[in-house]
Simulated assay, not measured.
Amino acid sequence: MRPQVGLQTGFAVLLAGLLALSAPARAAEAASADDTAKYLAGLPVPAASPLAPLEAEAGWKQHASYFNTAFARVDKAQLSKVRDWSSAHIGAGLRKPTLYYFFSGPDFLYANAFFPDATTYVMCGLEPVGPIPDLTKLKKGTASQALRTLQTAVRSLMGVSFFKTIDMKTELRSGPVTGTLPILYAFLARSGKTIGDVALVQIGADGTIEPESGARTGAHGAKITFSTAGGPAQTLYYFSVNIANDGFGKSGLGQFGERLGVGNALVKSASYLMHGGGFSQVRSFLMEKSSAIVQDDTGPPVALYDRTKWDVKPFGRYVGPISLFPGRGQPKMTELFHKEKPGPLGFGIGYRHRMSESSLLLAVKK
């Protein structure tokens, strides 16, 4: 019996040793969403993170240097000035818990700069969500390619304040990491946020948020919970969805908005889609569900703002649309800027991204 006991004991010791060795390996298989965001943003991850070894690679060091320079530049030239403008003109009495930022793509940078203390951000665009990124599963040597793709994808927003949808369709489907989530991760991390949880979701028929099931109905997207150091929990929803009249009703966004209630809205570089009849439903939704709307001239036309119900304040200088959008000039907008003394803007925004040509409106519901 003793040899059998010894064999069993030896096997038990060997099994325990193997389990002890395999436990750290399993724990290192996946990085947290926050570590992933920091890595993609070019920010150091904790030493114990499974992504820490990847930061020794030349590709990540170049990426971190590039993003350090790029984000410092855009913060100095744009975002810090947007925050100052927001602080001066969107006081505590105007701020609501929810921000509706449709036609946004993954642009969290400007959503956060204009409305930093929203508790719920609802963003959407045609850009795909993609899978939740797991960088530990990338093939060896492909992490640098993922970082280069990310740099290319954010370049237009960092340079001219908006995403170019045509370019994004290609950029967000190429490379080893795809979709809008890597961009949202990087923007959240660079905005000083700590990501808590990320889930793929969809909107149910009654406007509730449900786990992604692959159903054909309802908008599909991602839910990201995050926070700023010492601040409350915040939530970002991004939906990849068609919000033209043939898609908005099916998306469930209207029902979801009914649950969230009145909020604020941000509209910029929206291709003047709400100037025609094809996007009348989403336009009505934003004007009904918003206490205050910050918009460039691509938002709801000035002529639709009933002055008995809205105060509309102009900022900057209105020179009309760029040549890509002929026929979208607004005589009422020109009249507004001539009739009322526009407030200073101090930054460029939208398609007229040069500061000397940029305009913004702050519409506040009475």
Rank of each mutant, 00 (worst) to 15 (best):
G125I: 08
L109H: 02
V122F: 07
V82L: 06
T149P: 01
L157P: 00
N112C: 09
D107S: 02
V154Q: 03
V82N: 00
R148Y: 03
K137Q: 12
K76W: 11
T142L: 09
S156T: 15
A88Q: 14
V122W: 03
D134E: 15
K137V: 13
T152Y: 06
L147E: 01
V154P: 00
T69Q: 04
T69W: 09
A146I: 05
A58S: 08
P133D: 07
N112K: 12
G159T: 14
A92S: 07
F102M: 13
S104G: 01
W60Y: 10
A143F: 05
P128G: 09
K96T: 05
D134Y: 15
N112R: 13
F108H: 03
W85L: 05
A58Q: 11
G105R: 06
T136I: 13
G93K: 13
Q62W: 10
L147K: 01
L138C: 05
C124G: 12
A77H: 10
P97L: 11
P106T: 08
Y101D: 01
L126M: 15
R148N: 02
S86N: 07
S144A: 14
Y100M: 09
C124I: 14
P133C: 14
A153Q: 02
P106R: 10
Y101G: 00
A58H: 09
T98F: 03
G93F: 09
R95G: 02
V129N: 04
K139H: 07
M123D: 00
Y121H: 04
G91Y: 00
S80Y: 13
A58L: 10
K137L: 13
P128L: 14
T149I: 12
T98P: 01
Q151M: 07
R73I: 14
Q151G: 08
A111Y: 06
V74L: 06
H89S: 12
R95H: 09
S104R: 05
G59R: 05
V122Y: 03
E127R: 15
L138I: 10
R83Q: 10
G105F: 07
T152Q: 07
T69R: 05
K81F: 11
D117V: 08
A77Q: 15
F102W: 14
A143K: 02
Y121T: 01
T98W: 04
L109M: 11
L147V: 03
F71A: 04
K139V: 10
G59P: 01
I132K: 10
A146Q: 02
Q78V: 13
A118T: 14
K137W: 07
G59H: 06
A118W: 02
E127S: 11
P97I: 08
K96Q: 10
T152L: 11
P97V: 09
A113Q: 04
T152P: 01
D117H: 07
P128C: 13
D75C: 11
C124A: 15
Y100C: 04
A118S: 15
R73D: 14
K61Q: 13
M158N: 07
N112L: 08
F67Y: 11
Y100I: 13
Y110Q: 03
L109W: 07
G93L: 12
P97M: 13
L126C: 12
L150Y: 05
D134P: 13
A113I: 12
P106M: 12
H63A: 02
L99M: 06
Q62M: 10
L109C: 00
S87M: 09
Y66P: 00
